[in-house]
């Protein structure tokens, strides 16, 4: 009886102990001085998150149009890479797409802030492709953007030249409230 109860207790406790696992050992991730950042290096399978959740699974993880996730090998936890290693405003899907359905090594920062619901959010910095010992930087988004938008080539950061962003700002202003209100707010903010 005692043995059986101990086994039941161990089974119930198993997910809790897995959640508490430390993935920081051996990480080379650089701090971004973010509240709630914790270095995390682990192996994971690259998945199309919508496919993982709902069974809606197009070829090649959605060909770069969908958010990609990381199912961690050690505990099957789905990690959501929100950001790649470039400074600026780029997600991580472009860096993960070449590794769709493969198990890779990743290194970066987990963002954990329970007060605002951040759990298993990831800043992806480095990737070790399947079968390789080399770590590569997760920094390919801007290159992909430039290939996709040759008409927007020029000086300055991509987000000042992006045709869709420019069109939205031309239509609704920087504050998104219409051009007249934009002018009025600018007068207050920059007076």
């Amino acid at each position: 009886m005692k043995k059986t109860l101990a086994l039941i207790a161990a089974l119930v406790a198993a997910p809790v102990s897995l959640m508490a696992q430390d993935f920081s050992q051996g990480s080379q991730a650089k701090s971004w001085n973010l509240y709630g950042e914790v270095p995390a290096i682990f192996d994971a399978k690259v998945v199309d998150i919508l496919c993982e959740l709902t069974g809606d699974c197009p070829d090649n993880c959605g060909d770069g149009n969908r958010q990609l996730g990381l199912v961690r090998t050690d505990d099957d936890v789905l990690i959501f890479p929100n950001k790649n290693s470039q400074t600026g405003f780029q997600g991580a899907s472009a860096d993960l797409l070449p590794h769709c359905a493969s198990t890779i090594g990743v290194d970066g920062m987990l963002i954990e802030d329970p007060d605002i619901g951040a759990q298993n959010i990831y800043l992806l910095q480095l990737i070790r492709p399947a079968g390789s010992d080399e770590w590569i930087k997760a920094n390919t988004w801007s290159k992909r953007w430039a290939e996709k938008h040759p008409e927007a080539a020029g000086k300055g950061p991509w987000f000042r030249r992006d045709p869709r962003v420019k069109a939205e700002i031309e239509r609704e202003g920087y504050f998104g409230l219409g051009l007249e209100e934009d002018k009025a707010i600018k007068a207050i903010v920059f007076e």
Binding site: N82, G88, F89, Q90, G91, W141, W145, W158, D162, E168
Partner: peptide, 9 residues
């Protein structure tokens, strides 16, 4: 807008 265009979820 920048983040959405940049593929941030």
């Amino acid at each position: 807008l920048w983040c959405s265009a940049g593929g941030i979820p």
